[in-house]
């Protein structure tokens, strides 16, 4: 599904190397987690994959379903099936949540040469998905993320994911700022989307989230590289001992 090879990335403005050769292969239907200390490049990896400005790829490649995505515009990557759940979802005053979602869903359908959803069909679909995420009609009417609590913002991200039905979901610290109940709700939303045709890359600091979204593979990232890969037990090891042991072991 997702194949990242020797990915090197620097910040455009500061000439600072952030990713220093990331290799990662994620098969269809699998859940991989990336853990790592602050500043290791986890969020940068998610932004680079989603196509945010400000980064320069100096070497390596990233392919989604065999297609090179690094040359694509962000909207093309989305239409190709990539979705990034933001660590800090952006507030957009003046754009209604529902309008935004309908525009996005139909833009993707159009890009894939599918028919656009009618207003009635869209409404039916969103009501159904919103209900399971405990998102009420008021939240759908309000401007995108404006005045939403931390938990509401993250639930709104998962709602977008459910509506857009991407093949490759990247969750960037989706657990940050969530209490236990909110985290469970979000995790349930994610688990409901697990499917053999859909892969997840879960970026997190903590083992906690991985109790609810069980990963198949765990990677440890430090200083712009993946330094260790293992099973779910690796997350537990980090939880118990921190990163120091792993960093020492690799060095």
């Amino acid at each position: 599904m997702l194949e990242i090879k020797n990915l090197h990335v620097k910040l455009e403005e500061e000439d600072k190397q952030i990713l220093k050769g990331v290799d990662l292969t994620l098969e269809a239907g699998k859940v991989h987690a990336i853990m790592g200390p602050n500043g290791s490049g986890k969020s940068t990896l998610s932004y680079v994959l989603a196509g945010r400005d400000g980064y320069e790829v100096t070497d390596g490649s990233a392919k989604l379903g065999g297609e090179d995505i690094l040359e694509m515009d962000p909207e093309e990557r989305a239409a190709a099936g990539l979705f990034l759940a933001f660590q800090y979802p952006v507030e957009i005053p003046g754009v209604g949540n529902m309008t935004f979602l309908r525009t996005a869903v139909n833009a993707q359908r159009k890009a894939r040469s599918e028919d656009e959803l009618s207003a009635a069909d869209f409404l039916k679909l969103i009501r159904e998905k919103a209900k399971s995420l405990k998102i009420d009609a008021d939240m759908l009417k309000r401007p995108v993320n404006v005045g939403f609590s931390g938990g509401e913002k993250k639930r709104n991200e998962i709602l977008q994911m459910a509506m857009l039905e991407p093949k490759m979901c990247i969750l960037d610290e989706t657990d940050s700022g969530l209490d236990v109940d909110a985290m469970k709700l979000v995790a349930e939303g994610v688990n409901a989307l697990r499917d053999e045709g859909r892969s997840f890359l879960v970026i997190t600091h903590y083992q906690r989230l991985l109790d609810h979204i069980k990963p198949d593979v765990v990677h440890i990232m430090a200083d712009g590289k993946i330094i260790k890969t293992g099973g779910p037990e690796l997350a537990l090891e980090v939880e118990n001992n921190g990163y120091a042991d792993i960093l020492a072991e690799v060095a």
Binding site: A50, G51, R52, D53, D73, P74, E75, R77, A78, A79, F83, L84, F86, P89, V90, E91, I92, P93, G94, V95, T99, F100, T103, A104, V105, A107, Q108, A111, P143, Q160, L164
Partner: peptide, 23 residues
């Protein structure tokens, strides 16, 4: 940031810009 957010959901750049202008 808003522009990237909209584009990352599949809204083409010109359409995303129009949405923000109207907003």
């Amino acid at each position: 940031d808003a522009l990237f957010y909209l584009r990352s959901r599949g809204v083409p750049e010109h359409q995303a810009q129009d949405l923000l202008v109207l907003a």
